[in-house]
């Protein structure tokens, strides 16, 4: 069932993005040749177009590209002069480190913030957390990235100013420590913004849970404070929080695009921006497919986590 949905979604996304690219002002030949365009005459242009099949109807072009994709060939990136699949693979590894750390950090911190706010509802600490979340929920990622960059990299000088590895160092001399150092600021940026969603949802959900009949009954049995939260609050509020965090994969990806751009971090996001700006059509389409799968997997995990963790759905299937 899910796989059928996945396939139809991918086909639709591919077709739409293919048509969008086709109708955009990007001229694939110009993008390929670049500055040497002046040296290419109209006849040569036509020859290239013919060689690439650009004179065929759009739908035929789509099928040509589509059948190549199905065969595992996403084409060659024009900017990197490398197969698209390799570019994505390498970039994805960088992005994964960034997104995974930000995802875990924002999930845990946001959850704790939401719990604290709900348990101390109406107090100053609740107000501060709410204010923080509302403010950050309306803060653009790139702006926060610039701010973090200014404070921690420029003024304080604690961290490198950008990129994934130090400049002027041979690839084999780059240590893990170097990579981590370069990772911290983008992760921080994404996490600072990512907590707002989880925190606000957790807060509201926990307030509902604490007002429920079963918590009332637990109070009547003499439970209170941390024991009450630990026994009844945590398990009832963790479930929606986990689901929400998985479903936030799309926002994470969107945030990573902007953060990577600000920090010149060589991840998928930066590659997407480059591919878009410089008209690298094969790479752009490859990235579209890849991000679709990524977001779909996030939602799928959210779905599955509920089925595995919630006894109401788990026990019924037995």
């Amino acid at each position: 069932m899910k796989s059928v949905r996945m396939v139809t979604l991918l086909v639709a996304i591919c077709l739409i993005s293919f048509l969008l690219v086709k109708n955009s002002p990007i001229d694939p030949i110009q993008a390929y040749i670049g500055a040497d365009m002046l040296k290419v005459g109209p006849e040569q242009r036509e020859k290239i177009a013919e060689y690439w099949g650009l004179d065929e109807p759009v739908i035929v072009q789509f099928f040509n590209w589509g059948s190549a994709v199905l065969a595992g060939d996403l084409g060659t990136s024009m900017i990197y002069r490398q197969p698209v699949i390799e570019v994505i693979g390498e970039r994805f590894f960088n992005s994964l480190a960034l997104m995974l750390s930000a995802w875990l950090l924002s999930g845990v911190v946001g959850f704790v913030m939401g719990v604290v706010a709900a348990m101390k509802k109406g107090t100053w600490i609740d107000r501060i957390i709410k204010w923080y979340c509302f403010t950050l929920a309306s803060t653009p990622t790139f702006w926060m990235g610039l701010l973090v960059l200014m404070v921690f990299a420029v003024w304080l000088g604690w961290f490198p100013i950008g990129m994934g590895v130090p400049a002027g160092v041979l690839a084999e001399d780059v240590t893990l420590m170097d990579r981590i150092q370069h990772l911290i600021l983008p992760v921080l940026t994404l996490s600072i913004l990512g907590v707002a969603n989880v925190a606000l949802h957790t807060r509201q959900k926990l307030i509902d849970v604490m007002a429920s009949d079963y918590v009332l009954f637990a109070r009547a049995r003499g439970e209170k404070g941390f024991v009450l939260f630990w026994r009844h609050g945590l398990r009832n509020v963790a479930l929606p929080a986990i689901t929400l965090q998985f479903a936030a994969f799309s926002e994470l990806f969107g945030g990573a695009v902007l953060a990577e751009q600000v920090f010149s971090y060589p991840g998928l996001g930066q590659a997407t921006v480059e591919a878009g700006l410089r008209g690298d059509v094969p790479l752009l389409l490859g990235l579209v497919i890849f991000s679709t799968i990524f977001v779909f997997v996030g939602n799928l995990l959210a779905d599955l986590s509920y089925r595995v963790l919630d006894p109401r759905t788990r026990e019924v299937r037995k």
């Binding site: 429920s212 009949d213 079963y214 009332l216 009954f217 637990a218 109070r219 009547a220 049995r221 003499g222 439970e223 209170k224 026994r231 009844h232 398990r235 009832n236 479930l239 919630d310 006894p311 109401r312």
Partner: peptide, 22 residues
């Protein structure tokens, strides 16, 4: 606070008073 659940007990109305995930 010391007697609740020890000397005084409530038998509530419905299954909604049980924690659904425990």
């Amino acid at each position: 606070a010391t007697l609740r659940g020890k000397e005084l007990a409530l038998v509530p109305q419905s299954v909604n008073f049980l924690d659904p995930l425990m």
